[in-house]
Design a protein around this nucleic acid. Sequence first.
DNA 1: CTAAACTTTAGAGCGCGCTCTAATGCAAGA
DNA 2: TCTTGCATTAGAGCGCGCTCTAAAGTTTAG
Lengths: 123, 123
Amino acid sequence: MKTTHTIQQVTKITGLSAHTLRYYEKISLIRDIEREGNGYRYYSEKDVEWLQFLIRLRDTGMPIRDMQRFAELRYRGNETVAERRQMLERHKHQIREHIDRLLGNIEALNEKTDYYRELEKER
Amino acid sequence: MKTTHTIQQVTKITGLSAHTLRYYEKISLIRDIEREGNGYRYYSEKDVEWLQFLIRLRDTGMPIRDMQRFAELRYRGNETVAERRQMLERHKHQIREHIDRLLGNIEALNEKTDYYRELEKER
DNA sequence: CTAAACTTTAGAGCGCGCTCTAATGCAAGA
DNA sequence: TCTTGCATTAGAGCGCGCTCTAAAGTTTAG
């Protein structure tokens, strides 16, 4: 059973617009998408999973440049697995640092809202 | 003891460039900065603290539009404290949601690196 | 006194990540 | 068959948050 999806179906699954899907292909974040005689794209299940992974990288703040690098490694095959893993390890580290900064900032904002609450009492 | 800082000193304290400091003033994120006869800016201690607070809002993902709204409330005085607190509460909530998404994504990336590690073993 | 290094302004430019336009062609339902 | 709604492309445009330029004035070190 081989399932493919039209670009519209992929917009519904991923939340990416058709414009963005074509853009991602143009900048080589995704490649080799099946076409039929009419020139239309038909995304495989694997394509969709890859897009969802790209979305994860994006949502965790990875710049497109780095995503391009990662995609290139992926399309080069299994010999790049170690390098890909290193990229992800480094990226995870950065996300953790980001989270730590956010937590520190929340702490500071807590103090601010506490202070505001005091001011509100006084009126 | 009343301390003021030149724009260069403020760049060192805050990490914001002189360009950005002027830009923030132009878009009303900060106002009423003291000037002397020469037209130069002299930032008070309070100005610097406010800038540091703005940086916190920025670093936690608050868009400039919202920072402008917050700044406007601040310059309107104490009667806006409740509204400011509400803004911050909502913002903190969004940060927490953001952190949760990041944690979920780290979890998924962990699975990916685990899988890569398996692949690496096999070679 | 001079030169280097600061300051000011208005406004242009930039990098990022999309987002949209225009022109054209294919597909599917009445 | 006709109409509506999809699809395609190259390339322009946009919103965000700065970042830089140019032309001019001020300050400071030697």
